[in-house]
Computed example of a mutant assay.
Amino acid sequence: MAQLTDHPITRRWPPKDPGVLQLYSLPTPNGMKVGIMLEECGLPYEGHRLSFADNDQTTPEFLALNPNNKIPAIIDPDGPGGEALELFESGAILLYLADKSGQFLSQDPTERWHTIQWVMWQMGGVGPMFGQLGFFHKFAGKEIEDKRPHERYRSESERLLKVLDARLEGRDWIMADYSIADIATAPWVRTLREFYGATDIVGWDGLKNVPAWLDRFLERPGVQRGMSVPPEN
């Protein structure tokens, strides 16, 4: 891609400033990760809000950026070597933005890899399990008579919360300092508590550390701004 304006996605979502990073997203838990990261690290960007109701994620323009038809996705016109970079998958985008900004991912090799480890834990466990629990607890899945799927995701979500609670013992954040591990994980925990309304079935009241950690996260100004990125048109 020679320049941003050559990409098919710009036909549907024209950039106002082709020189800054372009975000294509919605404030879902995965979308919030990148919106929060961009607000926290201060990189200039332009947000384009997709509509699931209009099936924007399945349009040819968006599929040209992310063939997996999921948000978020980005194009950075000033990527490695000054070349434009297309990127999807929220975890990969967090890692890229951390490297680009030099923030929220330690340069100490051990701390860095341990942080990445916890990001992968969220990507492989927390997101998929919490999302499935939300489907079976709040959405159409609750009508399914066979309750074994619901119990499977409920029990695994409870287990993951206990893992996080143990990690946070004696810590303010997942790592020594606030990092992309917190940015990756907290939007999903918030969704479990505030959108799915599932705290009463996952042992929330028995957690010692997670509720206060989530509240600390939500008090950050960058988090508060990032949770509504991209704004409604």
Rank of each mutant, 00 (worst) to 15 (best):
G82T: 14
G82Y: 11
G82M: 14
E83P: 09
E83Y: 11
L85V: 13
L85Y: 08
L85D: 09
L87R: 05
L87S: 00
L87C: 03
F88H: 04
E89P: 00
S90R: 01
A92C: 04
I93E: 03
L95K: 02
S101Q: 05
S101P: 01
Q103H: 03
D108G: 14
D108C: 12
P109N: 09
T110W: 11
R112K: 15
R112L: 10
R112P: 11
W113M: 13
W113C: 10
T115E: 06
T115L: 08
T115V: 04
Q117D: 12
V119Y: 09
M120R: 09
W121I: 08
W121Q: 10
Q122E: 12
M123C: 09
M123D: 08
V126W: 02
G127S: 08
P128T: 07
P128K: 02
M129R: 00
F130D: 07
G134Y: 02
F139M: 09
G141T: 04
K142A: 14
K142D: 09
E143D: 14
I144R: 15
E145F: 10
D146H: 15
D146V: 13
K147C: 12
K147F: 12
H150Q: 11
R152P: 05
E156F: 11
S157V: 05
S157N: 03
E158D: 05
R159E: 07
R159Y: 09
K162Y: 09
V163N: 00
A166E: 15
R167A: 11
R167L: 10
R167Q: 15
L168G: 06
E169L: 08
E169K: 10
E169R: 08
G170W: 10
R171H: 12
D172N: 08
W173A: 04
D177Q: 12
D177K: 07
Y178A: 01
I180A: 03
I180N: 05
I180R: 03
A181P: 08
A181R: 00
T185L: 07
R190S: 10
R190T: 09
E194I: 05
F195N: 07
Y196P: 02
Y196C: 02
Y196F: 12
